[in-house]
């Protein structure tokens, strides 16, 4: 078993794999409707923003992401917020989204299935996904100035 771990250790250190592809899935929207990933996806790029109501950097980033949504939605870019709040804090999600005047769709991932499926290890995490559902960029955390780096990445792939 220790040899097995040594091999895994080396693999993680040396090997870089092809980007992950997102499988089709259904989720519940903020208004309790069932939505599919294919119906939310953009013609070109899709931005997936994983966040939670208790995560301060997540809330700080959301107005900037709304700005990105407004700026690029006419260029075939979709933005989807993936809320990962558990039962403890889920009642705060809708008031936060509405009072922040967020217009991009929000889906609920209460049992963190999508988060685990896409190996999201910290919040906030922002993914840029291409038209073939391939994850082409991943950004973890948010500090002021990161919105410019995210826009630069979007411009690169547009």
């Amino acid at each position: 078993m220790k040899i097995c771990f040594s091999i895994i250790f080396s693999v993680f250190f040396c090997v870089s794999m092809e980007s992950q592809t997102i499988r089709e899935f259904s989720a519940t929207s903020l208004d309790n409707n069932t939505v599919t990933f294919s119906s939310l996806k953009g013609e070109g790029l899709t931005v997936l923003d994983f966040w939670a109501s208790w995560c301060k950097p997540c809330l700080k980033s959301m107005p900037y992401i709304e700005g990105i949504y407004t700026k690029y939605k006419d260029q075939g870019v979709s933005v989807v917020g993936v809320n990962t709040d558990g039962p403890r804090s889920q009642s705060k999600v809708k008031p936060i989204v509405k009072s922040l005047n967020i217009h991009y769709p929000i889906i609920l991932d209460m049992n963190n299935n999508l988060m685990n499926d896409l190996n999201v290890l910290s919040l906030p995490t922002l993914l840029i996904v291409d038209k073939n559902s391939k994850v082409i960029y991943r950004h973890e955390g948010f500090v002021k100035g990161d919105e410019k780096r995210i826009e630069e990445e979007l411009e690169k792939y547009l």
């Binding site: 809708k94 936060i96 009072s99």
Partner: peptide, 13 residues
């Protein structure tokens, strides 16, 4: 039970 309200920039839970 939970009741939420949101009017303009105001939110309540």
């Amino acid at each position: 039970g939970s009741l939420n309200a949101y009017i303009n920039s105001f939110g309540l839970s």
